[in-house]
Amino acid sequence: MLERLPQPYTDHMDSLTTTTLAALELLFSGNSELWEIIAISFRVSGVAILVASPPALLVAFILAYYEFPGRRLLISINSTLLSVPAVVVGLTLFILLSRQGPLGEWKLLFTQTAMVLGQIALAFPILVAMGHSALQACDRRAWETARTLGATPLRALITIMREARFGLMAALLAAFGRIIAEVGASMMLGGNILHYTRNIPTAIALESSKGEFAQGIALGLVLLILAFTLNAFLQHFQGKGQPA
C-alpha cells in the first residue's frame, strides 16, 4: 500500500511513525517535564470540576424539579452558553482579570487559579445541561416517595442524585473531557508558563509551533488515551442508566 503512494506521502508516514515512537519513548521513560505538564492539567481540571459540580448540579435540580417564571429562559441561556468557544470565555475572563480590569486587584491573571476559573466557566453549562437531562429523566415518584417517607429536602435531593447517578456521572465525565482538552481559555488565562501553568493542550500548541512534534504527539496520546477512557466510562454509565 505504502509503495503505491507518491514519495512525499511515504515521507510523511515515516516521519509520523518515527515521531510517534519517539513520543511513546518520551512518555514511558518518565520524562519529568512531560509528566509535570500532565499533572498540572489533571490538577487544574480536577479542581475546576470539583468546584463547578455542586452549584451546577443544584441549578440542574432546580431547573428539573421546580416551575418558576423565567425557567425556560434560563434553560435557553444555558444551552447557548454550551456553544460559546473556549477562547471567548478566556477573553472575557482575561478582560475581567487583567490589571486594568474590574477584578485586576485580585492579581489572578497567568495563575492556575485563573485557569481553574476559565475551566469552571466552560464546565458549568455542560454540567447544568446534562445534569438537568439526567434529573428530569429520573422518575418524579422518587422525590415524592422520599419526601412522603419523611426525608428532609436535602436527604431527598441526595436520594435523587443517587437514583440519577449514572446520568450525572456521564455529565461529570463529559465536562471533564471538555475542559482538560481546551486550549483557548488556558492559554489566555494561564499564559503557558513552564512548571506552573503549562498544561497538555497549551504545551501541544507550543511544541508544535517549535517543530518539536515528539512531545506534542506524546501529550496528544495522553489526551487520546484519556478521551478513550472517559468515553468507555461514559458508555458504561449511560448503558447502566438505561431502563432494563
Partner: peptide, 16 residues
C-alpha cells in the same frame, strides 16, 4: 400534613 400522612402511589416507586 407531611407529619401526619403517608401517601402511596398507584405504582409504588422502589429506590435503586
Amino acid at each position: 400534613l407531611q407529619q401526619h400522612t403517608l401517601y402511596l402511589h398507584q405504582h409504588p416507586y422502589m429506590f435503586d
